[in-house]
């Protein structure tokens, strides 16, 4: 009996210790976000925390800076195209991955996630040489290609996971009921993998929105993505405008994550 209370008490201290650890972890993860978001509302001329007063002036300032707004628009556009292209290519790749059987399958999966395994800088350098060869270096299209390459694995992993959840017998059932390949895809497979597909697209978008190194090397002449524009901006001015920009990107990511949550919820519903 006393032994039981003992272990119980022991477990309790352990639980408390664990709780403290988790709180510390969250503080560690959240602190930069809280600082940057807080700083964006300051009235002072410097990025500082805690903020002095409360104002939206740096948000107005941000939307009045042509270079930053151009960067935002460029990032949004590239992110959107990246999401759409990776979703469709990764969908096809995932379907191919389903058909490939045996030992080859493992290599195929590895190949599809290769851009995650090679350092971004090396990929960027390699791609830059390649783009020079085909005379597409320093173009928006070249940058776009880089983003698609770097974001593809995220979309692939998410879509392939969703695809594995669809039993092969559903495809056969559909076939036996007279449906051709396209009808089976549209009426059975696509609706079932839709949550995974959308999730893959959102991951690809968020990833593209955050890419720095590859954008730095491949960026078109006179064009900047938001992270590049922000870095340039911070090199000369250390104003809270940057904090406002960062807060905006955080909001965008949170919106993406919320959407993912909703979709995962939907997926569980099946």
């Amino acid at each position: 009996m006393s032994e039981m209370t003992n272990t119980f008490g022991h477990q309790k201290t352990m639980n408390i210790g664990f709780g403290v650890l988790i709180v510390l972890l969250y503080v560690f993860l959240m602190a930069p976000l809280v600082m940057i978001v807080g700083a964006s509302f300051t009235e002072s001329l410097m990025i500082e925390f805690p903020p002095q007063g409360l104002s939206f002036r740096w948000y107005f300032e941000f939307f009045n800076r042509q270079d930053l707004v151009d960067g935002l628009l460029m990032s949004l556009r590239i992110g959107a195209v990246t999401a759409i292209v990776t979703m469709s290519v990764a969908m096809m790749a995932a379907m191919a991955g389903q058909v490939i059987a045996g030992r080859l399958s493992g290599w195929f999966q590895l190949g599809m996630t290769l851009p995650l395994l090679v350092p971004e800088l090396l990929t960027a350098v390699g791609l830059l040489f390649f783009l020079y060869k085909i005379e597409m270096a320093k173009t928006v299209l070249g940058l776009q290609m880089g983003h698609i390459l770097m974001s593809f694995p995220y979309a692939y992993v998410s879509i392939a996971a969703a695809m594995r959840q669809v039993p092969h017998s559903l495809e056969e059932a559909s076939q036996s009921l007279g449906a051709n390949g396209w009808q089976t895809f549209r009426l059975v497979i696509l609706p079932l993998v839709m949550p995974g597909l959308a999730m893959g697209g959102i991951f690809a978008f968020i990833n593209s929105f955050d890419l720095y190194t590859i954008s730095l090397l491949l960026k078109p002449l006179g064009g900047n993505t938001l992270p590049l524009a922000l870095f340039d901006f911070l090199t000369y001015e250390f104003k809270p405008t940057a904090a406002a920009a960062a807060t905006l990107s955080i909001l965008l990511s949170i919106a993406g994550v919320a959407l993912v949550q909703r979709l995962v919820g939907l997926q569980r519903a099946f």
Binding site: P167, A173, S176
Partner: peptide
């Protein structure tokens, strides 16, 4: 003849109903 043009009905052990 491909499966979808054979016009055979198939009933599977795990039913294979479309969950959606």
């Amino acid at each position: 003849t491909p499966a979808n043009r054979r016009g055979f009905g198939v009933v599977f052990q795990n039913y294979a109903l479309f969950p959606h």
